[in-house]
Design a protein around this nucleic acid. Structure first.
Lengths: 142, 142
DNA sequence: ATACGATTGCTATAGTCAATAGCTTTCCTG
DNA sequence: CAGGAAAGCTATTGACTATAGCAATCGTAT
């Protein structure tokens, strides 16, 4: 009668496990919200990153977002095929990835969705913990 | 002269993005530490979960760990093939997944590694943020 | 100026992981 | 004891990551 409905996950208090679970849950949520825009999370990240810039190469984007050069190819291929980006030659070796007009418009939709998402995410965290969340995460990547 | 060496990732202050990055980095780290045991993170999670129990079915493990029934099959198949678990019939439909002797011994190694990992993870977070970390993450999964 | 190492963008491939649909057998309940 | 739910499984797909390798170009240090 007083038994828990389901035994509480004994792993959920482990920081590593909690981190994995939370990230999985939130990324599934974000992915679902971006789906109507026909964009994956990585796609949206690229749009957000190159906004207002005309000098970022594929390699540079990959370095910042932790995506390998080889894996940037199909990603940018999708964005290009969707008409959201354009490749502008810098020299005969490098090319800048820049937003097209359609890319700018799609970016505005991305901003609306991700902005809402970030708000909702933070809102789920009890207020006392809230200001510590991003700093703690940032300390882990360094 | 005062320009940053590399433009700081403008996305890193977004909670969702920071969460994703931190989780990726930490899981890559944990995966590397578990590799010598020939276990993946999910494998180790299962061992930790069924420790000291003899009544958990594949479906129950999946519910707790957020792994679908279909995906539990190859996972348990690996653990079985490695001799770490045994399937004990509960009735003609269900079977309990229990640790073998080898499973118990492997689990001890897992505990040593994950314990160390959790310590190192928390140590990277500045002390003031530390007590807020797990509670904040737990609030996100509910 | 030029030779050499590094970088860019790319192909091709393989592995991990999660998600879906569907099947059979067994269990449980009305 | 009939019908729905659950267990365990097969099969397949897609997203994402990782590795190796290649040709062309760039930058630099002689």
């Amino acid at each position: 009668m007083s038994e828990p409905v389901l035994a509480v996950d004994p792993l959920s208090s482990l920081p590593g496990y909690a981190l994995r679970r939370a990230a999985n849950a939130m990324m599934a949520e974000l992915g679902a919200r971006l789906a109507p825009l026909d964009l994956r999370i990585s796609d949206a990240s690229v749009l957000l990153l190159i906004a207002g810039r005309d000098d970022m190469t594929s390699s540079e984007i990959g370095k910042v977002l932790d995506i390998q050069r080889a894996n940037m190819v199909p990603l940018l291929g999708r964005l290009d095929a969707a008409g959201l980006i354009r490749r502008v030659p810098i020299d005969r070796k490098s090319q800048a990835i820049v937003l097209t007009g359609a890319g700018e418009r799609r970016l505005a939709e991305v901003r609306a969705i991700t902005g809402r998402f970030e708000e909702d995410l933070m809102a789920r965290i009890p207020a006392p913990h809230r200001p510590h969340f991003v700093p703690a995460l940032q300390a882990l990547v360094g």
